[in-house]
Amino acid sequence: MNGEAPRRPSGLQALHPLTKLALMLLALVAAAAMPTTLVVLAVFVGLLVPLAAWGRCLGAFLRSCLRVLWPFFVSLVLIQGFFTPGPTVLMHVGPFRYTLEGLQVALLFSARLLVGLGAATLLMMVTRPDALMRALVERGLPNQIAYIVVTALQIVPTFQARAHSILDAQRSRGLETEGRLIIRLRAFAPLVGPLILSSLMEIEERAIALEARAFNRAGRRTSLVSLRDTRGQALLRWVLLLAGLALVAARLMLWRAA
């Protein structure tokens, strides 16, 4: 995202940000609403995977999903398996019983988590945050909020470099950072203090720079980049919204019936 020449937008990338947001939200709703693991997985395989392929980021997408999911998956399988009561015992470990019902709960939860994480990840991979914010601002999101989100995404990574500089500076003055807990605790103020203080200074100067760009001006704003939207996509978003509502309604009825 930083410093690279933009690849020619592929099909998915070229969609309007709100369309992509709507697709991901539908995936989330479907995952939450569907009652069985297989159906939820079908959402992943049937919706998110083809979208990722269309967006030419399938490999990275899958790797990212698996990397983030597996610790949760392992914990869920263990915890739910051992601590969910149920009749079908698969194995005994000491006094603990591992149940099939527990495993099933774990799998369902994991599948939902997979779709949730997958949707968020895919959205971030195929949508530039500022494009998404622009789309939301067009629909009424306050400018200030959009600014905060995008800036946080860009500025917060610079804190890492700054923290490193601070660490260098303080170590050069004899600060010990390795060893007993008390030593590490003493290092806290000299490391965190400058980060916070200099960030405050930076915020003030950046506020001055923003004023110089007429950021707080009342009045009409325009946009350098226009987000391409089509009637087809607008229609699709309505369809997705209705589909989402239908899923929720169906789920509620299922619940009532059960």
């Binding site: 995202m1 530039r128 500022d130 600014y147 995008v150 800036t151 930076e202 720079a209 923003l210 760009r213």
Partner: peptide, 8 residues
């Protein structure tokens, strides 16, 4: 500090 942070 003069980079707005709002644009990519």
């Amino acid at each position: 500090n003069q980079i707005s942070g709002a644009r990519y």
